[in-house]
Simulated assay, not measured.
Amino acid sequence: MNMISSERIVYVDGHYGPESQGKVSIFDRGYLFADAIYEVTCIIGGKLVDFDGHMVRLVRSLKELDMPMPMSPQELLAIHRKLIADNNVDEGLIYMQISRGNADRDFNFPSKDTRPVIVMFTQARPVLESPLAKRGLKVITLPDIRWGRRDIKTVQLLYPSMAKNAAYEAGADDAWLVQDGFVTEASSANAYIVTVDGRIVTRGLSSDILHGITRAAVIGFAQEAGYVLKERPFTVAEALEAKEAFITSATSFVMSVLSVDGQMIGDGKIGPVSSRLREIYIDKAVGARI
């Protein structure tokens, strides 16, 4: 009797197959040097949220690292859709990583004709009804000691992983990273506060933070809804005095932060601003999925 495999179908370097057979070379520069970029796109109802925005950032990241675009956005979209269909994913995420390719180990970049390697896989998980979104987050603060080009979405994620693990060990959900006394962002999300007079504050775009696709959408939706928003750095002390705090990312949408370093933000409950922005994002961004 034939048994139906429970393995996911993944895409590796031009081929679809079961995850147990999805392998890359030991000479892949993503493995050797973290010489690779990635994007993660949310799946709702079997469709992709803000795919075009992710493609714009993908092109920018590749250009900043002098890596060629391996195929057109339309071709990448077709692979995304096939993986969603093959894995029957109704809600979850799809990850795409593009490395510079395979070459003998050398700090110098390989020749320009080195072919990039693309890897994609899905993760089925609840997004709309996320338990963390219903509960709210506890965060700790840690020094931001990442490299200086955080605006490029590379796979250099060891320190963010260490930071998130440190948060878990401290009984929190995530870490806010601090540089020169100011919050940069969370381990894998952009950070915000809502001041006592109702202003939304978040750090402006620079090489210090990732240019979040969800960040851009939420800022636009907030301004359309009449919220006053200020793009500037804020300190941990300001966060502790704020009425609300929250994060945004493609995997979390908008999530409220209830405490920082064990100190309650506002009344320690999910606030009306973050709650409303999550509703607006789900209504507009999710409604426009492809």
Rank of each mutant, 00 (worst) to 15 (best):
L205D: 11
Q179N: 10
W176L: 09
A189F: 05
Y192L: 07
T195K: 03
A191E: 04
V178G: 07
I209E: 01
V194T: 09
F182T: 08
Q179V: 10
D197T: 15
D197Q: 00
T202G: 04
E185F: 01
Q179T: 13
T195R: 05
T184G: 06
D180K: 04
V194R: 02
T195P: 04
G212F: 13
T202Y: 04
S188T: 14
T202E: 06
T195G: 06
N190W: 07
F182K: 07
A191N: 01
H211E: 08
V196N: 12
D197S: 05
D180Q: 10
V201L: 08
S188N: 10
I200W: 08
D197G: 05
L177E: 01
A175C: 10
V196K: 02
T202S: 00
S188Y: 13
T184M: 02
A186Y: 01
S187C: 04
Y192V: 14
I193C: 05
G212P: 12
V183F: 08
I193L: 08
D197W: 08
L205W: 11
L210F: 11
E185D: 08
G204D: 08
V178L: 05
V183D: 00
D197V: 12
V178P: 03
L210Y: 00
G198M: 13
A186W: 01
F182V: 11
S207E: 15
L177A: 02
I193Y: 01
I200Y: 05
T184Y: 04
V194W: 06
A191M: 10
V201T: 07
Q179P: 09
D180C: 04
W176Y: 00
D197R: 09
V196E: 14
V194H: 00
V178N: 06
G198V: 15
L205N: 12
R199M: 15
A186N: 02
F182D: 01
D197Y: 05
S207H: 14
S207W: 14
E185T: 06
D197M: 14
Y192C: 12
T202D: 06
T184L: 02
I200K: 03
S206H: 14
T184A: 06
L210G: 04
D208Q: 15
S207I: 14
V201G: 03
L205P: 11
S188I: 15
D208M: 12
E185W: 04
R199P: 13
